[in-house]
Amino acid sequence: MIIYTRGTAKIEHSVSKEIFEIFDDELEWEVVGGDERGMGQETIYEAFVDHDDLGDLRWSISEYPLGVENFTDTNVGVHRIVSDFDYGLEHQPDFDEEEPIGLRNRLKANPEWATALTRGSLVKLLVDWFHYLYEDPANETPYNGREGGYLYIKGGPYNAEEELRGNFEDIVPEEALMAAVEEIQSDGLFDWAPSPRHQASVAFYEDAVADDYQQEEVSFEKLSEIAASEPSAGIGSAEEKAARVTVLEQISALKDELPKPASHGGIGHNHPPEEFELHGDELEEAAASIDAIEAELVSNDPSAEVVAKKASLLKDAVGWVAGKINTTVDAFCKSFGMTLGAAAAVAIPAAILASPYWAKLVVLLGSLKSWLLVVLAL
């Protein structure tokens, strides 16, 4: 059930006989009480207007039993009602599509329902629509303090008022639209990123998957050859910076867990060795390659050729691990849900953070491939 209020109320002042008009968008309905009765709960709704000349004006609706309008009552004190609103309870239309993304179409296709909505109800619908399509950039948007903050690689930043106006200004009252903006921005956040349901995010990931499919077979060795003969056209772009931030975050997470090479050829960690642990020359080569890649990526002009060569050595280390369990590099990588051409994620998934270090190494290889593809404009 929803409360509808239509028309204009006209009230005559008891002394001056002046007739005042009260408009339907001035009424804000709230639940003010109710009791448990024989056929269930009774709910009392009330709208209150504090008028400069008429004083306290109240409109009330009783819902009892659930889903049934019991009575309505208008109280204007000593004044006289010339004509009242048409107001009460009515059933909300059944919609084929209830997701917030379809709100504009529902409002346009059901004007009587849209008109009947109280401002509070409409504001809630607008706020739900916004949060369905937009999110705090802290959720998934890469951040780089040196570049001035968030890198909106999927689109944005978006502004609540601009987005609501662009979608609803022609069909909702200004007061409701601005009340929704105020509520959305109440926590002090004014720049928003697209949520995974926003078309900009959908397009971003579709493009990433398409690029991954096309470039998966490009090896690090081939990328090293390309980097040696062609300029790194993608260095400095927003996409490259975002991918670089991701790689550096993954390197940091990996280095925290990578065993330390032992000074006498032993295994450099304190827990028992497993069959497919990196150790000895493989561990030293992997650690040195990771350090070299990190050094390049923190510089102002990283060398794609060096990164590709060192990434190739890391892939060899992964191949050594894979061989210990009698599988291929590709099969080993896919066991962690990654391929060596996978697009760089915008954040390190919690599942990866909880995985053993070789899983983080697999993820790093995929992100390095993605960074190289961006840098070389492939």
Rank of each mutant, 00 (worst) to 15 (best):
K324D: 03
S355N: 11
P349V: 11
G319W: 04
F332A: 04
L314C: 10
K324T: 04
T339A: 03
L353K: 15
I348L: 12
T339G: 13
A311L: 10
T339I: 00
V363D: 07
A350T: 13
A344G: 11
V362A: 09
L368R: 02
K334C: 04
Y357C: 08
A311M: 09
K360N: 11
A359N: 09
A347S: 15
A343R: 13
T327R: 04
K310N: 14
I348N: 09
G366L: 02
S370N: 12
V362P: 12
V329Y: 01
P356L: 09
A351T: 08
D330V: 03
A343L: 07
V346F: 12
L361V: 07
T339W: 01
K315V: 12
T339M: 01
A322Y: 00
G366H: 03
V321Y: 03
V363N: 05
S370R: 07
V321W: 02
G319R: 08
A345D: 13
I352T: 13
D330E: 15
W320K: 10
Y357Q: 07
N326V: 01
L353I: 12
A322I: 03
M338A: 13
A351Q: 09
V346E: 11
M338N: 10
G366V: 04
G337A: 04
K334M: 14
G323N: 12
P349G: 12
K369G: 11
A317W: 05
G323H: 02
V346R: 15
N326Q: 07
K360M: 09
I325E: 12
G366M: 02
V362H: 11
